[in-house]
């Protein structure tokens, strides 16, 4: 049963990491605009001119 002396702290640590991440995400305003994030993924990146040149050379 000694294994639980390791496993329980590990479980708590992992859970705590998740919690810390969640609180950080609230702090940094990631819940301020929930709909916006879902739409922004559809915005195309500005075409990068250097990359464009390379692809045209092919």
């Amino acid at each position: 049963m000694n294994i639980i002396a390791i496993l329980i702290p590990v479980a708590l640590l992992l859970g705590g990491l998740g919690l810390a991440g969640f609180i950080w995400s609230i702090r940094s305003g990631q819940y301020d605009d929930l709909e916006g994030a879902a739409r922004r993924i559809l915005i195309d990146e500005e075409p990068d001119e250097e990359l464009l040149d390379v692809s045209q050379e092919k």
Binding site: D32, D33, L34, E35, G36, R39, R40, I41, L42, I43, D44, E46
Partner: peptide, 27 residues
């Protein structure tokens, strides 16, 4: 839609003096 967000933010962002332009879609 996403295009609206992109048009507004990019057009404003292209101006020399603008340092930040951010659309909050929910509000």
């Amino acid at each position: 839609c996403a295009n609206c967000i992109a048009r507004i933010e990019r057009t404003l962002g292209a101006r020399e003096d603008v340092t930040e332009a951010r659309v909050n879609f929910s509000t």
